[in-house]
Design a protein around this nucleic acid. Structure first.
Lengths: 228, 228
DNA sequence: CGACCATTTGATATGGATCAAGCGATGTGG
DNA sequence: CCACATCGCTTGATCCATATCAAATGGTCG
């Protein structure tokens, strides 16, 4: 075992906790809610929040990408989810974060005070509905992840690519913001196995690599069939 | 692959959908809500609801045990969760069930109309809070499950036993209502591997088997350490 | 008692991990 | 602007954990 790769130091940006009196700008959260929030930049690998810190803020990815993850006692890292532009993360049901969060690439993140939103939800049915929808999305994500993790390496990689494609604007071409190591830690595989599976898919013509991070899904039927 | 074991027919009890004018009895749901519901018996392996059926009811295990699961195209079965007495299941965020549910052993299940509860939640803050807590528990379960699935076979089995122990009344002795096949399908392992790991744990004295379904956790420290 | 089902045990095969090295791109300092 | 270090990714060789295939054992119910 020992997938290692403990996020090496990094964090050159101020941590999210240090949100103080930043100039508030009105931005849309979810679909219809207009919320006050602070737009913060995070450098690649910068920590946004840590596991078991109080979950006082919600975050919306404006651009870039974010991963949530846990590091086990022995150093193995498991990525819980990736969040792409438009996605909201950091919503916890309990009082504190169950995962840590870090920027996968340089990102701009909208930071919203949780208490504001929760208070609002108490009065506004629509806000409450959206909070529910976020929790729902989170649960769906986790359940889909479970189904991925019991498959073969090939199926996991295919499943991952299809998932990313479904979440991307141009659905036939995927731009992966994360490294092979991130993918490996998400899929419970090693970096070598991920790489080999990608190579294999390419050699069968199921996908094509514009660059190692930019993948074209050629044979959608084949891929969908492999997704079992 | 091919863990197979497609739940063989079974279902000798009327399906839950057929809930009609059953004599309603008042029973406690969660902690404080008193709800109208129908108590229904389900025989071992009887289907309670099927995947992608409308989620019109909530269910509370009164006694026995329930599994939720999905069957993949190729026949592999993945169990999402086990529910023990006191647990509530069947709450979906969307309109329909994302898993199927079946009784692991002969069980009595309290069936509650969802619409009644949701309507009530609109008026009663406490009910709304409890619905939120249920969703939270569900998410927590899924996330814990993800962390289990990336571990070694030994760790998964240990993690499973500790989880079951934590949820059981007498915490040092566990009565497993489910078969080895159920455990295997929950952990993403084969029945043989589960059996071997149990045998191994027994031979090292970490656990003892009263019967194959009744397990005593002897060396809790050792087990916790293996749980990484 | 005998049939059936769940579980265990054994022998072998294999998918993915591990160890190791090579390669290409990116950026940095001289 | 080039030389070189670094980093991310790929490729290769080997090992090992778990799956697979097969059979024995044990418990339960008619």
């Amino acid at each position: 075992m020992l997938t290692q790769t403990i996020t090496r130091n990094a964090a050159q940006q101020p941590a999210a906790r240090v949100v103080r009196s930043v100039p508030t700008n009105t931005v849309s959260l979810g679909n219809s809610i207009k919320m006050m929030g602070a737009l913060m930049p995070f450098g690649r690998n910068a920590e946004i929040y840590g596991q078991s810190e109080p979950a006082d803020y919600l975050y919306k990815v404006v651009n870039g990408a974010v991963r949530t993850y846990k590091v086990l006692n022995d150093g193995r890292r498991q990525i819980g989810s990736f969040y792409l532009p438009g996605d909201i993360f950091g919503l916890e049901v309990g009082g504190e974060h169950t995962f840590s969060a870090a920027a996968v690439a340089d990102s701009k993140i909208l930071v919203i005070k949780r208490s504001v939103l929760v208070a609002l939800a108490g009065r506004d049915k629509e806000v409450a509905r959206q909070l529910w929808a976020m929790a729902a999305a989170e649960l769906q994500r986790a359940q889909d992840h479970i189904m991925l993790l019991v498959k073969t390496a090939r199926e996991r990689v295919v499943g991952f690519l299809l998932e990313m494609a479904a979440r991307s604007p141009g659905s036939s071409e995927v731009d992966l913001p994360m490294s092979r190591q991130d993918i490996a830690d998400y899929l419970g595989l090693t970096i070598e196995t991920v790489s080999r599976m990608v190579t294999e898919l390419e050699s069968t013509g199921a996908i094509a690599l514009a660059t190692s991070r930019r993948i074209v899904l050629c044979k959608r039927g084949t891929l969908n069939r492999m997704n079992a």
